[in-house]
Amino acid sequence: MSVLEATETATEGRPRRRLLYAELRLMSGRTRNLVGLAILCAIPIVLAIILAVTRPTGGGDGQAPPFFSILYGNGLFVVLTSLMMEMTIFLPMAVCILAGDSIAGEANVGTLRYLLTAPVGRTRLLSVKFASLVIGAIVGVLAVAVTAAIIGLSLFGAGEMLTLSGTTLSFGESIGRVALVCGYVMAMLVSVCAVALFASTLTEQPIGAAVGTLMWIILHQILTSLDALSWLHPFLQTTYWANWSGLMRDPVEWGGVGVGLLSALAYTLVFGSAAWARFTTKDITS
């Protein structure tokens, strides 16, 4: 189904959820998006195999030291390792690519003007685009987490999980903690969706919106690593991305998690509002 056909189906007196459904169908039907999702899922598999091959075995009796025995006794640690690795570049990049197609992609192929004459108001269209990006980000995190959990549990088992405080959690408790970590990562990616959506309203070139947002994220990561700019760190988008570690302590350190969520909310509101202001006032020529 083409974007025009999908829009006709979704806007002939149908509610907003039908428009969202059409947008999700278009997003999931693009080959490059499916290939990108497959790559995201392949990374945990490769990582788990490498960890299994290089797993320490300890002394001559072939047994690993106690610390490593606990660490490698619960395959859910592969989920945490995979999310930590993919949040450096892969998951943000995936969101940036999706967002590049949201507004700039429609303008580039000449369908944005048609969408707005369908009757679909600009605010409604932008909210649907943002919702589809958020759903895409959630699907990406879930795909990575589920893949990592399956391969991790297959290779390392389902024993107790070692926390960053040195205590251990039962398998049931560790599932809950990992689920909270996934939720935290999703919240960070929602803020990236807002930034990327704003970038997509500034140009008619989807690759420009995607690269621009990705450069924004990389710049923040670089600035975060510079101690000389510690005064700036609280205002950077990526500063709190690693605060999910507080969820893996015993007891949970909610302070850092709360600050991270507030930062993500602030970026979402600011750039979401900027995207709305830009899109509702811009001259649509294509």
Results as ranks from 00 to 15, higher is better:
A143S: 15
V144Q: 09
A145R: 02
V146K: 05
T147P: 04
T147H: 05
A148S: 12
A148W: 12
I150M: 14
I150N: 02
I151M: 08
G152T: 06
G152H: 08
L153H: 11
L153N: 12
A158R: 13
G159S: 12
G159D: 03
E160T: 11
E160V: 06
L162P: 02
L162V: 06
L162Q: 10
T163F: 07
L164E: 08
T167G: 03
T167E: 13
L169I: 00
F171K: 06
G172K: 08
E173D: 15
S174D: 06
S174Q: 13
I175P: 02
G176W: 05
R177D: 00
R177V: 11
R177Y: 05
V178M: 11
L180F: 02
L180I: 06
L180D: 03
C182I: 05
C182N: 00
M186G: 10
M186N: 04
A187E: 01
M188P: 00
L189K: 04
V190Y: 04
V190I: 15
S191C: 11
S191T: 10
C193K: 07
C193H: 04
A194G: 07
A194D: 10
L197Y: 07
F198R: 00
S200Q: 06
T201M: 01
T203M: 03
E204I: 07
A210N: 10
A210R: 09
G212W: 14
M215V: 15
W216S: 11
H220T: 14
Q221M: 13
S225I: 03
D227Q: 12
A228Y: 03
L229E: 03
L229Q: 10
P234D: 10
P234E: 11
P234M: 14
F235Y: 15
T238G: 03
T239W: 05
T239I: 09
A242I: 12
S245F: 06
G246F: 09
G246Q: 00
L247E: 06
D250C: 06
V252S: 08
V252E: 02
E253C: 00
W254T: 14
W254H: 04
W254I: 15
G256N: 11
G256A: 13
V257P: 07
L262I: 15
S263L: 06
A264F: 12
A264V: 09
L265C: 08
Y267G: 09
Y267W: 15
T268A: 15
V270K: 01
V270F: 08
